[in-house]
Design a binder for these strands. Structure first.
Length: 501
RNA sequence: CUCUCCGUAGCUCAGCCGGUAGAGCAGUUGACUCUUAAUCAACGGGUCCCAGGUUCGAGUCCUGGCGGGGAGACCA
């Protein structure tokens, strides 16, 4: 491999250090007793603190003025300035530790540990006066250089391809990226705390499944050698979690990576995270209240307020959220009452409203198309849409009073679905018929139709209590909670084509 | 899959009507013992994404491909 000039020079520095007896990758731990954030916060209030401080981090900038230098290092909490003075680091005749090791062989990107005391410079900046330093790891590649002054950023590292492929660089150089991912984790923690407070049991179910189910999607296929068995990566957890409700748990939930072999865009990654929750003896009305309470709590935990800025909008998660039926919202946006319209009339209506349909679409799909194009994009504030056509929901229970509908809701927010829930279908005979209907669709060429799961039906036949179920898209919710326009901004390593070298 | 924009130094970008590659930062060397986008001086650094084509001559024009962004299609 041919090395660029800068890489070559760094390798020469590495050799130079070794010749001087300095291990560029020392094995022992480096004891740290403070973080940059702590120092910056507390020192201005009490200057007697941090007089014997030990800290470690990556060199982000160097300003060398002959016999004295300022260096910025960054740890996981932020950046702080260091002050190196030649005659203090090297009190005797031998000035190598400053002139050669520090000035010549150290670079931006190297990781060092320093000990010293904190003071404030003439310019008023909290700074560590370094009494000793140690190289902890030598960097052999030049880092992207981002500079800033008074909140203005210069030469920002913005190329999306490099940011996603080399996320570590993005994290080193763009502090807001780290913030977003920390927020995501806090969001998951908040949700988990909420669920645990309710005494629901966090469980794990198989990712490798001989039959996939629980959603309408195309799966990834793999193969197990010993069993010589075709296996699918799960597209949803639903059917396994319901088996656990049959088994007698009152409430189970799982944070799960699911996999769908479909298109990718700003809202879709082939692998994504869902949280699914199933609670016995509850229904979808009850679940709506739980979702409101949970998401409101998350917003408060993350932002201290229920009102969150997302793009150009402020979204308020304060309870209660608007609840409206599918027919109701379509009437609101089109003025048409479609509740009694048959398929033929609906096709005519769709044409009139410039919504595309095709002959394979049944009544349910047409209604979904009307909703998806005419209503959903306008729903910015959190809104529950309830009571979906039965054709689109083969795992949901028939509506208690409205024929042709099921007891299902989705929460829409910022023009996108954030969760999907229903009163779970626990009538095994009805469930079998719905599966059979799906198999029919499959035979007609619907690649996303569900397959019949005989073991799941067997479980239902033993009896499942009435149950409310919920699936909530963690990535989608994280996008909202971190004000990220793309799913790639809330996934550390979004799927990419392999890099050609 | 379709449309569209982009791909030039480690990073951010300029490069006109086609005439043989440029800046800032970063790097190297030197000066500078409280700087902060440090400063000053000098220097080095390029598979212009890849492959063809047109042309005396291509970073630039054309065709195809690769990679990425955005929009749509499909899809939750």
């Amino acid at each position: 491999m041919e090395l660029s000039e800068q890489k070559q020079i760094r390798r020469e520095s590495l050799e130079g250090l070794r010749k001087m007896g300095i291990d560029p990758y020392p094995p022992d731990l480096y004891a740290v007793n403070a973080t940059t954030c702590e120092i910056l916060e507390k020192f201005p209030l009490d200057a007697s603190l941090f007089q014997d401080v030990s800290i470690a981090g990556r060199i982000m900038a160097r300003r060398i003025m002959g016999g004295a230098s300022f260096v910025e290092i960054q740890d996981s909490t932020g950046k702080i300035q260091l002050y190196f003075k030649r005659d203090e680091l090297c009190p005797g005749e031998d000035k190598e530790l400053y002139n050669t090791v520090f000035k010549r062989y150290l670079d931006i990107g190297d990781i060092i540990g320093v000990k010293g005391f904190v003071f404030i410079t003439k310019m008023g900046e909290v700074t560590i006066h370094v009494k000793e330093y140690k190289l902890l790891s030598k960097s052999l590649r030049p880092l992207p250089i981002v500079k800033e002054k008074e909140d203005q950023v210069f030469d920002a590292f913005t190329d999306p391809e490099q940011r996603y492929r080399q996320r570590y660089l993005d994290l080193i150089v763009n502090p807001h990226v780290r913030e977003a991912f920390i927020k995501r984790t806090e969001m998951v923690n908040s949700m988990r705390r909420f669920l645990n407070e309710h005494r629901y049991l966090e469980v794990e179910t198989p990712i490798l499944q001989p039959l996939y189910g629980g959603a309408a999607a195309r799966p990834f296929v793999t193969h197990h050698n010993t069993l010589d068995l075709k296996l699918y990566l799960r597209i949803a957890n639903e059917l396994y979690l319901k088996r656990l409700i049959v088994g007698g748990f009152d409430g189970v939930y799982e944070f799960s990576k699911d996999f769908r072999n479909e298109g990718m865009d700003r809202f879709h990654n082939p692998e994504f995270t869902q949280m699914e929750l199933y609670v016995a003896y509850k229904d979808y009305e009850w679940m709506m209240s739980l979702v409101e309470e949970m998401v409101e709590r998350i917003a408060l935990d993350l932002h201290g307020t229920t009102a969150i800025t997302v793009g150009d909008n402020v979204i308020d998660f304060k309870r209660p959220w608007k609840r409206i039926s599918m027919y109701g919202i379509i009437q609101e946006y089109t003025g048409e009452d479609i509740s009694d319209l048959d398929e033929k009339t609906l096709v005519t209506l769709a044409k009139k409203l410039n919504v595309e349909t095709d002959p394979t679409m049944g009544r349910g799909k047409i209604i979904d198309a009307l909703f998806g194009t005419l209503c959903e994009p306008h729903l910015i504030q959190p809104t529950f849409i309830t009571d979906y056509p039965i054709e689109m929901s083969p795992l949901a229970k028939k509506h208690r009073s409205k024929p042709g509908l099921v007891e299902r809701f989705e929460a829409i927010c910022n023009g996108k679905e954030i969760c999907n829930a229903f009163s779970e279908l626990n009538d095994p005979i009805d469930q079998r018929q719905r599966f059979e209907l799906q198999m029919e669709l499959g035979k007609r060429g619907d690649s996303e139709s569900m397959v019949l799961d005989e073991d799941f039906l067997r479980a239902l036949e033993f009896g499942m209590p009435p149950t409310a179920g919920l699936g909530i898209g963690i990535d989608r919710l994280a996008m909202i909670m971190t004000n990220s326009p793309s799913i790639q901004d809330v996934l550390f390593f979004p799927q990419m084509r392999p890099e050609v070298r």
